[in-house]
Write a protein that binds this DNA or RNA. Structure first.
Lengths: 159, 159
DNA sequence: CTCGATGCAAAATTTTTGCAGTCCC
DNA sequence: GGGACTGCAAAAATTTTGCATCGAG
């Protein structure tokens, strides 16, 4: 099986996941939702609602901003995307990847690029911190704001 | 020295810090800024811009929303407050406490209360994570969303 | 006096919502 | 065909900004 077919298979699995979630909740697979899902699957990195709107409109012009905003929670409930809070004024989203464990977010202060890196230890640590307060951890995130050592030669594309 | 006098001293130190920062940057210590600083010093827990506006207006009615918003960055630059991002739609702020090291934030999902707890280990860990990407950590935060074990008896006041 | 600071209200930004019409199952 | 879904535009919610005026140093 070559790369291309493997991609297609992953994509199909996600589509099935979405279809499943929708029907199990009495929701319908509309053309707009199809377009939005396709747009999500084409994302290679973090994206905003506005990014998604642009890509989805490219697939189906009839997709509106309101529908994108109404679809984001559905996509999250379907475990297809997750919200990534990076402390800015708007929200970022990322495609879920079940192969990965806890992800720490590193944000380059210069170019704004968001990177995620495995930090499996954090999963335990966050739980322990909550425990100390007699609470049960639900979710946790580690955000690191950082700079390339030599800002003049920041390797990441400017946002 | 009793508690009351100690408080006064802390407060004076902060006021001096603010005065210093202002004059060093050609900024003026206006009545509005005085009121806002006093309001900040009376905060016992995390607060929003709107909270601060309400408290400051209580001290000096002439304080406007715009001035509060314009003061927040100045207070941060003066290292009197810091921004606490808890993944909501608005920003929280907290009074800086130099005696404390790295603080992890634990947010009760039920009542919305924000707690902070020392997590000195994180300081090192975040730096290591950035290092792994060849970057230099500037700041970092650990956020844990949690729930009281028995949600029916959540001990924290509802927001 | 001078230039930084202020209040006000309008604007900007991101996200949500009411409504009348549309289309999936 | 009925109820879920949609686009649109208006509304919300939070923060920023332009401008005429005020006031600290």
């Amino acid at each position: 099986m070559d790369e291309k077919n493997k991609q297609t298979t992953d994509s199909d699995t996600t589509t099935e996941l979405f279809r499943e979630h929708l029907s199990q909740h009495g929701m319908r697979l509309t053309n707009q939702r199809k377009a939005i899902l396709q747009a999500v699957l084409r994302q290679t990195q973090h994206f905003t609602a506005e990014d998604l709107l642009a890509k989805a409109k490219h697939i189906d012009v009839s997709v509106s901003r309101a529908t994108v905003y109404r679809s984001l929670p559905v996509l999250m409930q379907s475990k297809i995307i997750r919200e990534v809070d990076v402390g800015r004024d708007f929200k970022y989203y990322a495609v879920e990847d079940k192969r990965k464990s806890f992800q720490a977010q590193v944000i380059c202060r210069k170019c704004g690029k968001i990177m995620e890196i495995d930090a499996p230890f954090m999963d335990w640590y966050g739980k322990a911190v909550a425990e100390k307060l007699g609470m049960e951890a639900v979710s946790q995130r580690l955000q690191v704001e950082a700079m390339c050592r030599d800002p003049e030669h920041c390797v990441f594309a400017r946002k």
